[in-house]
Amino acid sequence: MNISAKLDQLHLQARGNKWLYIFAIFLRFALAFGFITSGMVKVWGERFTVLPVSHPMGNYLEALFHTGYYYTVIGVMQVTAAVLLLFPRTALLGAVIYFPIILNICILSLSVRFEGSFVSSPLMVFANLYLLCWYYHKWKYILPINRPSVENELPQWKDLSSKFPFKFFAGSFGAVAMVFLVFFYGYDIMPRNTTRDCLSQCEDSPNPQACRDFCDCIHKQGQPLKKCLDAYHVALPE
């Protein structure tokens, strides 16, 4: 059995499960809601956040806000992707448009350690990947691999299995847990959203004064995150 046939078999098994079918519908609407709410803010020409420009993410979003119609276009694309996800016939196109946008948001959130989307954006990337896999039968023809000559029809709702996929949801729970573990324990210090929140980390820091200096560097001096992190790490005891 070649790679294409194995992928087809796995995809057919997934599409034949009622729980995974319902999960795909849930993810479509959940992702759509996430982008409609955030996208419409940009379409209306409003600021996306109240973070000060001294904050790394606030600085980025403020600059993005002042790009004019580019800011609006991002909102339009987010809303377009969200609306397309709501309808089965256009859901794949919505997922394709959605993916590069949410991947960019995820990378941005991790790079500046922004807790506002540090957890949600990676989970949305996983959800988007699930939908792309769910519609594998529609886009698989662009892959440079051999395909079987006979195509299998997808099962209808009445033919779906009601067996609960424990392994899949256990793996999904593990992925969610991994994201939370990275958020809480993956970084030695976070800029957080306010000076007060940032300072709340300092009690457990190996060098509380270095932690306070880091918070001051971010929230009062408005220095780049890397510069503040470098100063913090130099001050830590060896």
Results as ranks from 00 to 15, higher is better:
214 F>M: 13
39 G>M: 06
37 T>A: 07
6 K>T: 11
230 D>R: 14
194 T>Y: 02
159 D>W: 10
93 L>D: 02
45 G>W: 05
100 P>E: 00
212 R>H: 05
189 I>R: 06
169 F>P: 04
53 V>C: 02
85 L>S: 10
81 A>D: 07
34 G>D: 01
220 K>P: 03
222 G>Y: 03
187 Y>D: 11
190 M>Y: 09
191 P>Q: 05
231 A>D: 12
124 M>E: 01
132 L>F: 06
103 L>S: 08
203 E>Y: 09
108 L>H: 09
48 F>Y: 07
5 A>D: 08
186 G>V: 06
54 S>Y: 03
56 P>D: 00
29 F>P: 01
227 K>W: 07
230 D>G: 10
44 W>L: 14
37 T>E: 04
162 S>F: 04
29 F>A: 08
129 L>E: 05
73 V>D: 01
198 C>D: 00
213 D>P: 06
201 Q>M: 04
192 R>K: 13
48 F>R: 03
20 L>N: 08
171 G>F: 00
46 E>F: 11
95 A>L: 04
115 E>F: 04
85 L>F: 11
171 G>N: 04
41 V>E: 02
39 G>S: 06
227 K>S: 08
141 Y>V: 12
5 A>S: 10
224 P>G: 10
232 Y>S: 00
45 G>Q: 04
196 R>K: 14
120 S>A: 12
14 A>Y: 04
38 S>G: 12
35 F>Y: 14
80 T>F: 01
237 P>R: 09
97 I>H: 11
171 G>I: 03
84 L>K: 14
165 P>F: 09
111 S>L: 02
58 G>H: 07
236 L>M: 15
180 F>E: 08
59 N>H: 15
175 A>Y: 12
206 P>R: 05
209 Q>R: 14
56 P>M: 01
72 T>V: 15
182 V>Y: 07
156 Q>Y: 10
82 A>G: 13
190 M>C: 06
75 G>T: 08
180 F>H: 13
219 H>A: 04
170 A>R: 03
74 I>S: 04
42 K>F: 00
159 D>K: 15
56 P>S: 03
22 I>D: 10
149 S>R: 11
177 A>T: 14
165 P>V: 11
183 F>D: 06
6 K>V: 13
87 F>A: 12
160 L>P: 02
23 F>A: 11
114 F>E: 01
38 S>H: 14
82 A>N: 12
108 L>E: 05
40 M>N: 08
231 A>C: 09
37 T>Q: 06
194 T>Q: 03
182 V>T: 09
95 A>R: 11
43 V>Y: 05
86 L>Q: 13
142 I>F: 00
187 Y>L: 11
102 I>Y: 06
201 Q>S: 05
54 S>C: 02
133 C>W: 15
81 A>R: 12
75 G>F: 00
83 V>M: 10
2 N>K: 07
61 L>K: 01
194 T>K: 03
86 L>G: 10
18 K>G: 02
61 L>N: 01
130 Y>I: 15
221 Q>P: 06
169 F>T: 07
44 W>R: 14
219 H>E: 06
102 I>W: 07
189 I>Q: 03
187 Y>N: 15
14 A>M: 09
147 R>V: 02
66 H>T: 12
143 L>E: 03
103 L>W: 08
102 I>V: 15
124 M>G: 02
189 I>L: 03
127 A>G: 09
225 L>P: 05
94 G>L: 07
173 F>V: 12
177 A>K: 09
162 S>Y: 07
20 L>I: 12
235 A>L: 10
150 V>R: 14
191 P>F: 00
10 L>Y: 03
